[in-house]
Design a protein around this nucleic acid. Structure first.
Lengths: 127, 127
DNA sequence: TCTTGACTTAAAGTGAACTTTATAATCTAT
DNA sequence: ATAGATTATAAAGTTCACTTTAAGTCAAGA
């Protein structure tokens, strides 16, 4: 069982953020010791990594909240949870497509700078 | 020359956002008519599309601000501007890599749901 | 002429996701 | 046993990127 400090070291997530996530219901079943100090187990670490992946891919807190709520409801919500993940997968794929699309524009801009540079080269202009 | 209304129709960007971008210095040389109303030309539209691409790829307002400031400085800043774009290109590529990495985790989760479903199928359990 | 609608500005408000602060309790090492 | 570090909570504060509001100007149509 790990203290919050150990978890911040292992995950790079700040302690206040871990407390915030827990308060918002993103981390089910984090245990406490007899004095109310948090104790994290392997399961909690898995949840933290999963929540972090969802956050890193742009899922809002409220949606993760809902997912965890469904998880707590038990097996009857499995198909709904799967649907949420399928939907999120599509969102991520859309984000990736949009990033590539806009990356093209940046590359176009960079190509223009290359043209300018080659012109400077050819004409011996100094900038 | 287009009014702000026409530009919102063409770009899907809200009028207050266009004014905000201009106020923050993201849109150089937007002209006005004799009564102070904004008039956008093709150049302005190009800037709007470029700024939109930068925003969509996560570049902060402050950084775009700096880029436009350098642009206004003239040719002496070309290499610095090119460096900014090269750096941003790398950032976008990093974002894409991270999205793929986290997408893997979502796919793993989805694979688990598939396993559960096939188990339900095999054992004839109803959920 | 009046009013409607599109524009202008400056300033205040919003929402999301944390982060910081203040205060108190508890654990650890000397 | 006590100083100093770590943890707890609740509440306030921060940052970013807009968005909304309030108050005013101006041109065109009924």
């Amino acid at each position: 069982m790990l203290t919050i400090r150990k978890v911040t070291e292992l995950t790079g997530i700040a302690a206040p953020t871990l407390r915030y996530y827990e308060k918002e219901g993103l981390l089910p079943h984090v245990k406490r010791n007899e004095n109310g100090k948090r104790l994290y187990d392997e399961d909690d670490l898995s949840w933290i990594h999963f929540v972090t992946a969802l956050r890193a891919t742009g899922m809002p807190i409220a949606q993760i909240q809902k997912y965890v709520y469904l998880y707590k409801e038990g097996d009857s919500t499995i198909s709904e949870r799967k649907m949420m993940m399928l939907h999120h997968k599509k969102e991520i794929e859309k984000s990736i497509r949009e990033l590539y699309f806009n990356l093209d524009k940046i590359n176009y801009k960079l190509a223009l700078y290359d043209v300018i540079e080659s012109q400077i080269e050819r004409t011996n202009i100094k900038i």
